[in-house]
Each structure stands twice: as structure tokens, then as C-alpha cells.
């Protein structure tokens, strides 16, 4: 057998082995990533309903009728979760906040639109995407998607690389640039009133809305939803349960989502 033929056979053999082994090795590598990597079926179509998927409808009209409501929702959330207030934009930490229509929906650039939309305050928070880019980016699985659709954070594990903040297309993530338990120059603590039932965070980790996982577990609604429930401005529930209130609302109302074109499949829906 001449050397060329022998080389050819060697290469052919190696290629065959690689061909057989590679897919299974790849499969093993990705095993157990179900929670972290989350590719929904189909790029454009709706996602097949399996298990729970929590979602929220934000009825902006109701917030316009009750101008105080949004701030009450924010304050309820931030008090319960010990979210610090640093008093400046650079260090700012927010789980739920109000921004103007132009900033919440920057892609919507109608030539003419209702006057009321100009600068209209709109409540926004983490979208709990079904296909979250932040979860894909996180190098330690400190942020992950749960079976019920909630995108959670494990602050114990976060190394503070802020890759998730670069990845989030909705500006929903905040970083603890300094110690949230500290005080400002006047001795005022950043967390005004501490909720003894919930932890704070520490310097150097990223944080965001957790859809009140800890409250859902004991049968309560998310804090913001609880505040808004009398007005029905926020409707929260399992979108995969056809009888849930949110399913009914989504079936009967036209809603929009923040930047849906990038395939993140947000779980927040707006009625404008």
C-alpha cells in the first residue's frame, strides 16, 4: 500500500469517527442547558404552550386616568424588594419605572400621532422574554429562565461582568455600582426603609425585576399588580391557561410589545 493511500485511509477513518462522535459530544455539552439556553420553536410564530408562562398586560389608558398609580406601583415594588435610591442617574437601580412613550417604543416613529402620546408616561419593567438574550449571554448561569417563564437572577453567583446589561435590549437591568446598604454624604441611607423579609443586594452584582417569584410562591400577586388590581391597569397571570384573566384580555384586545422584531418574545403586552 503506498503512503498516499494509507494517509487517505487514515484521514477517512478519523473523519468518520469525528462525524459520529461530534454530535453526541455536542449533545452532552449542551445537556442540562434547558434552563439556560432557550430557543423557542419557530422564529416568528407563536410559541407552543407547555406548562406555565406568566405574562402581564399593561393598560396605559388606566394609568392615564390615574396619574398617581404608576408611582404607587413603583414604590410598592421598590420598598418590598429593598431597591436602593442613589439619587443620581449614573448609579441608578430600578426594577420597574416610568419612561415616556418615545423611549419605551423608540421604533414607533409615526409621522403624526395623537397629541396625548407625546411624552406619555408608560410603566415598564423586565420583559421576562421567552427567548432572553441576557440568559444566553450570562457566563455563569447567574441569570436563567425558569419553567414558569420568569427570568430570574441568582445574586450569589453573579460575577458582575455586565454582559447581560449589554445584551438586554430593553434596559431592564441595573448594576450595583456601589454598596446599596451605604449612606450618602448627608448620612441618608440609600434604602430608606428596609423590608426585613427580603434581602438587599451587594456591591458588584446585577439586579432586576423577578416578577415577584417570592410572592407568587405564597399565592400573592406581584406587588405592582396588587396595587393596580382595583383599576385593572395591570393584569397578570398564566398566558398558557386559556381561562386566565390575562388570556381573556389578550384575546379581546389589541396589544403591542416593545421591539418584538428582534425575536425575544416578551411577556409584557401594552394596551395604548
Amino acid at each position: 500500500m503506498d503512503s498516499k493511500r494509507r494517509d487517505f485511509l487514515k484521514i477517512a477513518g478519523l473523519t468518520a469517527i469525528a462525524g459520529i462522535a461530534a454530535p453526541s459530544a455536542f449533545g452532552t455539552l449542551l445537556k442540562g442547558e434547558a434552563n439556560a439556553s432557550s430557543a423557542p420553536a419557530g422564529g416568528h410564530g407563536p410559541v407552543a404552550p407547555t406548562g406555565k408562562r406568566y405574562g402581564m398586560v399593561i393598560d396605559v389608558r388606566k394609568f392615564t386616568e390615574n396619574p398617581e398609580l404608576a408611582n404607587q406601583c413603583i414604590s410598592a415594588c421598590h420598598t418590598i424588594h429593598n431597591v436602593p435610591d442613589f439619587g443620581n442617574k449614573k448609579d441608578e437601580i430600578k426594577w420597574i419605572w416610568v419612561d415616556s412613550y418615545e423611549h419605551v417604543f423608540p421604533e414607533n416613529t409615526q409621522y403624526k400621532r395623537p397629541d396625548a402620546l407625546k411624552g406619555m408616561p408608560i410603566l415598564t419593567l423586565c420583559n421576562h422574554c421567552d427567548n432572553p438574550p441576557c440568559v444566553r449571554a450570562c457566563p455563569t448561569k447567574a441569570t436563567y429562565k425558569k419553567k414558569d417563564g420568569i427570568v430570574g437572577m441568582d445574586y450569589h453567583r453573579c460575577i458582575g461582568c455586565r454582559f447581560c446589561m449589554a445584551a438586554c435590549p430593553y434596559g431592564a437591568r441595573s448594576f450595583n455600582w456601589r454598596d446599596p446598604r451605604g449612606k450618602d454624604a448627608n448620612g441618608r441611607p440609600f434604602i430608606k426603609e428596609i423590608n426585613q423579609k427580603y434581602p438587599t443586594r451587594m456591591r458588584g452584582v446585577v439586579e432586576k425585576c423577578n416578577f415577584c417569584t417570592e410572592r407568587l410562591a405564597i399565592g400573592q400577586l406581584p406587588a405592582c399588580v396588587e396595587v393596580a388590581t382595583p383599576t385593572k391597569a395591570l393584569v397578570f397571570g398564566d398566558m398558557n391557561d386559556p381561562n386566565s384573566e390575562i388570556s381573556q384580555v389578550l384575546k379581546t384586545s389589541f396589544t403591542i410589545q416593545r421591539n418584538p422584531a428582534i425575536g425575544t418574545h416578551p411577556s409584557l403586552f401594552y394596551i395604548i
Binding site: K146, K147, D148, G152, D154, H156, A217, I218
Partner: peptide
Amino acid sequence: WRDDILREGGTR
């Protein structure tokens, strides 16, 4: 406890 509750939605 932490991993079970945070990630798997385990009982509290």
C-alpha cells in the same frame, strides 16, 4: 435550598 427554590421553583 437556594438552587432548588430559585431555579427549579421548589417548595419554600
